[in-house]
Design a protein around this nucleic acid. Structure first.
Lengths: 193, 193
DNA sequence: TGTACATCAGTGAACGCGCGTTCACTGATGTAC
DNA sequence: TGTACATCAGTGAACGCGCGTTCACTGATGTAC
């Protein structure tokens, strides 16, 4: 192909980050640079014209996935016209669905990247972004101003249940328990309040 | 060293499995055979005299970790002389401690191996053992016969919260949020009932 | 607007390295007499 | 109980392979005139 226009190069770069953010969520960050570039329609050699290292891409792809997530619940909130509990309910329904369990690539980065982030160093940009994403998510799940009993920490506990159920149901997929986990967590999160 | 007594060989084998079960929980199953054997005090060449493949060891080490876990809450139950809620409370306290967060090697295999199991094939022995371990754990966390409101699924939801909090707090370690997660989940699990 | 040339995104071969696994070899252990 | 020999757990070098990364090369793009 040789040289390519600046616009094309920028689009290629964007496509690599987007592909990475999906593949990393689906298979983990140990996906190889070669596989990644092939999935993005390029050869592996081009990688280092755009990124300093694989680590740098992991950080950038993580940030990309979280930005997408934030955009998603902004849309959700808007869709329910600010009715916070209805937006939360819709998110919980989608989050604990079999479709979400089976589509990690397009799914929640908090769930998909937890272990890769935990195994990466504490000083990594990916962890900073991840932690911020967890805070945002917990805030979204927190009880609204109008409801009582909200201690702030409640959003965090609800996130633990939501997140834990998804990760556990993925690990037990193939057994009926996998679906039972989604159901049990859904019941606990929707009936309690 | 050359040949070694049958008793010695068996002890070596046991040591490799035990070392693997700890290292896999701490760093994931991609720990190399060479590192593993070095940690067990042997050279990598000896590995294939005892195990068919690395996969086989992963399966065996997973089973080993779960057997240890089951033994642990059997002891816990006995210690509290069958007082189920007291045993549960003690387990929750320990589970959501900073010590447990920082010592994955000796900690809960449900939390430490979730992603490795999810990424391994659905037909793997490790997943079968894992799923069974989740069921046992949920049964331990279920409300006792004497308490009301137990629908069976409740033990599963509580496990999701417990497990989710530990995994999330490990991923966010380094931020104050990490400890807040442990506290929030602890409050939710102990006050609710 | 047209020409001449420098730039640089993308290519594909190559690098050193660590992986899982194999293998010829060692020599104390276990066994047969 | 003592001797002769087969066994086999452990050693360390070597295997093919895929990894992250580098590099000489290409040729359309972008720029200077």
């Amino acid at each position: 192909m040789s040289r390519v226009s600046q616009a094309q190069a920028e689009e290629n770069r964007r496509r690599v980050v987007d592909t990475a953010s999906r593949l990393f969520r689906e298979q983990g960050t140990q996906v190889s640079v070669a596989d990644l570039m092939k999935a993005a329609g390029l050869t592996h050699g081009a990688f280092y014209k755009q990124f300093a290292s694989k680590e740098a891409l992991v950080d950038e792809a993580t940030a990309h996935a979280f930005a997408e997530l934030a955009r998603r619940y902004a849309v959700e909130l808007q869709q329910y016209d600010g009715r916070r509990d209805a937006a939360q309910r819709a998110l919980i329904d989608a989050y604990l669905s079999v479709e979400h369990r089976d589509d990690a690539a397009d799914g929640c980065p908090v769930a998909a990247l937890a272990v890769d982030v935990a195994r990466g160093g504490e000083d990594r940009e990916a962890r900073r972004v991840y932690t911020e994403g967890v805070l945002d998510f917990a805030a979204f799940l927190a009880p609204g101003e109008d409801e009582e009993g909200g201690e702030g920490g409640d959003g965090i506990a609800r996130l633990c249940t939501l997140f834990g159920a998804l990760v556990l149901s993925r690990a037990t997929k193939g057994s009926p328990l996998s679906e039972e986990i989604l159901t049990a967590a859904h019941a606990a999160l929707t009936q309690a309040r």
